[in-house]
Write a protein that binds this DNA or RNA. Structure first.
Length: 150
DNA sequence: TATAGTTGGAATT
DNA sequence: AATTCCAACTATA
């Protein structure tokens, strides 16, 4: 487990080389940022720092622990969304032949925001929701240069 | 199994 | 613009 310093510090939990959880602290908890010495964790830490400073980073090579097959299906599709691009719940639902609501649920259950870019999935009108807080979602979109209309 | 709740969307008033 | 219905999935009892 390690924490990446940012506007909203990011806490990353891992088991081996697999990411199990990513969360934003938003100043609620106090955790000291520290950098892993080596391995996948160190690479991820560096990638995150670069990402938050505006570099076009892809986290697709990192493995994330996903419980259900449905979650893997939906989030797998989400990971195909490129940097700076967006899609909607409806689009995903159509592609996966499911309902927009089910997609929303899967995204809410996403254990690793940022690594799996669920923030690039918006509602058809406006900007859906975000389990870690909408302020975080807006900030992430802003970093990638996506302008919100509403 | 039954039921209610979801980061939605479309239809209807 | 506000309300109502729909759909696929999950969590809970």
């Amino acid at each position: 487990m390690f924490v990446v310093p940012w506007k909203f510090p990011v806490k990353v939990s891992m088991r081996g080389n697999v990411i199990t959880k990513v969360e934003f602290l938003k100043g609620k908890e106090k955790t000291i940022a520290r950098r892993p010495k080596s391995g996948v964790a160190a690479a991820l830490y560096d990638n995150m720092l670069a990402y938050f400073s505006g570099e076009r980073i892809s986290f697709n090579r990192y493995e994330v622990e996903l419980r259900s097959a449905f979650l893997r299906r939906v989030l797998g599709e989400v990971r195909k969304i490129g940097y700076g691009e967006t899609t909607t719940y409806g689009e995903l639902a159509k592609k996966l032949e499911t309902s927009p609501r089910a997609v929303g649920q899967a995204l809410k259950a996403n254990p690793a925001p940022v690594v799996i870019p669920c923030h690039r999935v918006l509602a058809k009108r406006g900007l859906g929701g975000f389990s870690q807080g909408l302020d975080v979602k807006r900030e992430l979109l802003r970093i990638e240069g996506i302008d919100l209309i509403t």
